[in-house]
Computed example of a mutant assay.
Amino acid sequence: MTHTAITDLQPFLAASEYIDWQHPEIKSKAARLASCYSSNRDIAHGCYLFVRDEIKHSGDWQLSPTTCKASEVLRSSHGWCYAKSHLLVALLRANSIPAGLCYQRLTIEGDVPPFCIHGLVAVYLDDFGWYRIDPRGHKEGVTADFCPPGEKLAFSIISEGEADLPGIFAEPVKSVIDCLHKYQTYKDFARNLPDSAPSEWSPQGVAELHSH
């Protein structure tokens, strides 16, 4: 379970270029998802399941072009982990549930370099504080779930050089956005996954994750 001493949730409710939750299609989908539930926790769970299971992972399904904005991901029904995270954050914020982006640094294959950044979502739940979820989608040997207070992400930090990168970000980080814009086919993107060493990172959002 994760908590934070945070006093201002407004940055994690805002609409922006990439978390464009005020787009009519995002608002409509968010309202339909919320109509099935009565509590914010259940709405968050429903939004998570939709993005995890109904939005295809571009790499797993070998889909192009690369998507970035939340509304693009919804319209195309696919995205890389980063773009799927943008959509989930947008759906949560459209339902007035604070949400942000967080990242891991992982090996791409096996337990040796090279590395890449992996995109996650942190949602603020009244009963638990900040809670990390992974909407990338399942594939053989990779599963994730929404089961607070427990955390079940798709990938664990195992190898030297891997890390949970610090902080919750109200907006996507530049290295991720740059790659999503530059590489428009799944093959090009897969060959150029974004990476950044943990020493180069500092939280840009106002929230920090703490283990509890």
Rank of each mutant, 00 (worst) to 15 (best):
T2H: 05
A5Y: 10
I6D: 09
A14T: 10
E17L: 11
E17R: 12
I19N: 03
K29V: 12
R32P: 14
S35E: 14
C36Y: 13
S39K: 11
S39T: 13
S39Q: 11
N40Q: 14
N40Y: 14
A44Y: 06
H45W: 14
G46E: 11
F50K: 02
K56I: 08
G59W: 00
S64R: 06
T66V: 05
K69L: 05
S71C: 14
H78A: 03
W80M: 09
A83K: 03
K84D: 02
H86S: 07
L87G: 04
L87N: 02
L87Y: 03
L88S: 06
L88A: 07
L88P: 01
L92F: 05
N95I: 08
S96N: 14
Y103Q: 03
Q104L: 06
E109L: 12
E109C: 12
F115D: 01
F115C: 05
C116P: 01
C116L: 07
I117N: 01
H118S: 08
A122R: 01
A122G: 13
Y124H: 06
W130Y: 01
Y131T: 09
I133L: 09
D134E: 08
R136G: 01
K139M: 11
V142A: 12
T143S: 10
T143Y: 15
C147A: 15
P149T: 12
A154N: 06
I158W: 04
E160F: 04
E162A: 09
E162I: 04
A163N: 11
A163W: 00
D164V: 14
P166D: 06
I168S: 06
A170E: 04
K174P: 15
S175K: 07
S175Y: 11
V176G: 05
V176M: 07
D178Q: 07
C179D: 03
C179H: 09
L180P: 05
L180G: 04
Q184A: 13
A190F: 02
A190E: 12
R191D: 15
L193R: 02
L193C: 10
D195V: 08
E200S: 14
P203T: 11
P203E: 13
L209H: 01
L209Y: 00
H210Y: 11
